[in-house]
Simulated scan of single mutants.
Amino acid sequence: MAEGPFRSRLPEQWEPSVDLAETKDKIIVTAELPGLDAKDVSVSLMGDLLTIKGEKKKETEEKDEHTHIIERYYGAFERSFRLPENVQADKIEANFEKGILKVTLPKTEESKKKEISINVK
């Protein structure tokens, strides 16, 4: 816990919030990365492991400014997700706009779920 009149329990490492969604044709990963630019973020796929890495850098401070508490997080982060389906690695798209990273991973034809009708007796 922080010492002094401003006490707060803060996480030791910053991890961006991520949503995972799945449709019949694709998997969509959306990450909130406020304060970052596209150049600060990298996305990679190795096998079925999708990894998002980046770094949030702290702005410079004024010399006469006295900080009592900082609730904005800075530093490097890495989030990895094991994907439930095979994806077409050569067709993955990543877009970054207004602090939101959206990664679209199209599924392979074999991995798309096909509905099978079962006769109930």
Score class of each variant (00 low, 15 high):
101 L>H: 04
49 L>T: 14
77 F>M: 02
95 N>H: 13
11 P>D: 08
93 E>F: 06
116 I>V: 15
10 L>D: 04
78 E>W: 07
58 K>E: 13
62 E>P: 11
39 K>C: 06
7 R>T: 11
108 T>A: 01
102 K>R: 12
90 D>V: 01
88 Q>G: 06
69 I>S: 05
79 R>L: 12
47 G>I: 03
30 T>I: 09
16 P>E: 02
70 I>H: 11
101 L>E: 06
6 F>V: 10
42 S>C: 09
45 L>N: 00
78 E>Y: 10
11 P>S: 09
64 D>I: 12
106 P>D: 02
90 D>F: 04
95 N>W: 04
39 K>F: 10
112 K>A: 01
77 F>C: 05
17 S>W: 09
69 I>Y: 06
9 R>A: 12
9 R>D: 09
110 E>Y: 08
75 G>S: 10
16 P>A: 02
92 I>E: 03
104 T>D: 03
63 K>I: 11
50 L>E: 00
49 L>C: 05
64 D>F: 14
71 E>D: 08
6 F>Q: 00
28 I>F: 02
40 D>L: 06
41 V>L: 07
3 E>W: 04
47 G>A: 04
102 K>G: 04
52 I>R: 01
79 R>I: 13
19 D>I: 12
54 G>I: 08
99 G>W: 05
28 I>K: 07
10 L>N: 07
5 P>W: 00
56 K>T: 08
29 V>D: 04
109 E>V: 12
9 R>I: 14
33 L>N: 04
92 I>L: 01
117 S>V: 15
67 T>I: 15
77 F>G: 03
98 K>N: 15
94 A>R: 02
108 T>V: 01
85 E>H: 14
52 I>Q: 03
83 L>H: 05
16 P>Y: 02
